[in-house]
Write a protein that binds this DNA or RNA. Structure first.
Lengths: 251, 251
DNA sequence: TGATGCGCGTTACAAACCGTTACAAACCGT
DNA sequence: ACGGTTTGTAACGGTTTGTAACGCGCATCA
């Protein structure tokens, strides 16, 4: 039982010390994608256009009927679930290569609210064209289906995390997840900038932002990380992992 | 703001006082399904066989490669997420008309563990046949895709519930969800038998089983419900709803 | 038949964790 | 420099958990 899959990003050490991801470098990642969707291949079947983006606004305009899904090109987006009575829950963050809006397939309106964090851009894929491509190109069908299935699996592993880990462990697991996502995109997994506020992190982790602050401070005190506002340096991956429970959540 | 969608099952009052769902009556529901999947229509494209079922055993046999998805015919199944370190989280319950296993599409192994609760049966749909049908029958493609999308939306509303509601409210929301599921199948929404243990409920709601017990007792004290072990009578739907937050989670 | 063991459910009490509240410091744009 | 927003820190209090005890139903077995 000696640490299976213990090196989600330690094996990628080559790029673990790559450039810190800043808003600038985020926009120029390699175009090959780690998330199963190759932009060039899709473009052969579905007309895509780059989404003009205004920081802090929904990429889905409120009240508009559902007409497209989005493929994140740069930056990141937060996905929010809204209740009738005003409650709000961040259900995830999407980065380059992730799809946004697939859960609205089959609906007349959007299932969730999507908010672009600073400096984000996405490709807009008209939904009718996507459907047509799925029916005529088996490969597209397989891609969309496994993208949906992957979305479910990812949500489930967060349910596992939220249901079984205490506050501090959730924060550790979250940091490891962010790190491995950056690593997959070719950025450093040991030094990165969180693109979301403490409040967004807290909502996603089902905590209060003060609790997130305390947890981060404590992880800092234990020398697992070095954190200053949104800048994070991972000092002890092993320690973080044991804190999060080996293989906690994530992928 | 006067109570939108306030009558998820109050409008179906005609069947709200139908027969109590016992293990016997559960097996003979009408064959028309409320969940978007019509068994007879599917059978035209995909060979199905009734799954022999042994209470308490996985319907996915451990170690076997992924080869089918399942359509629940009777009873209910619980879906479990497992972590490497032994943590376990119930991520949902599936009833008649629900699909099981769609999240494993595209994988060599199963994403979650599935455990049949007492008296449950399912239709087995061989996965290759399902895929073939999706490519040749547009309607099948739409059905599978929206089943996957619905799965995502359902998971997300539970994240909303877990992230924003306190313990007692979660329990109330859970009861309302169970009630509306029974109503959709034509059973009473005001008098039903919970098919899962307190421990399973607790895991699903990210609580401890004692907390679930206390919450149920308190709902009983407030005369919202009448509960005796697994038998539940809903006495005050309105009260339950305000407890859960109007329109909380569900569906 | 009655005894025993086991899992499930309920309740009480104490302890721990996290949320609440409040305030101060750092950062940002103007 | 200014005000507003975000983040950090601390003390307090409440909700949830942990622990333990007990009742109940059911299966096993003498």
């Amino acid at each position: 039982m000696a640490m299976p899959a213990t090196d989600t990003f330690a094996t990628q050490a080559g790029n673990s010390y790559g450039p810190i991801n800043s808003y600038a470098t985020m926009a120029m990642a390699a175009s090959g994608d780690a998330c199963g969707l190759d932009i060039e291949a899709i473009r052969q079947h579905v007309p895509m256009r780059r989404c003009k983006h205004v920081a802090g606004q929904n990429i889905y305009h409120a009240g508009q009927p559902f007409h497209a899904i989005y493929l994140v090109h740069a930056g990141s987006y937060k996905i929010c679930e809204l209740a009738d009575d005003g409650r709000e829950q961040v259900s995830g963050f999407r980065m380059r290569g992730d799809l946004i809006g697939v859960e609205s397939i089959g609906l007349k309106a959007y299932a969730s609210d999507v908010i672009a964090l600073e400096g984000s851009e996405a490709w807009e894929l008209p939904y009718p064209a996507v459907l047509r491509a799925c029916l005529h190109v088996p490969e597209m069908h397989a891609r969309l289906t496994s993208a949906l299935a992957a979305e479910i699996r990812s949500d489930r592993s967060w349910m596992l995390m939220l249901g079984t880990l205490a506050a501090e462990r959730r924060v550790a697991a979250f940091l490891l997840d962010v790190a491995s996502r950056y690593a997959r995109l070719g950025y450093s997994a040991k030094h990165f900038i969180l693109r979301m506020s403490r409040i967004d992190m807290a909502s996603f982790l089902a905590l209060k932002h003060e609790t997130v602050s305390r947890a981060l401070s404590h992880l800092h005190d234990m020398s697992y990380i070095d954190v200053q506002r949104r800048e994070v340096r991972v000092l002890d991956v092993h320690g973080l992992r044991s804190m999060a429970g080996v293989g906690a959540a994530l992928n």
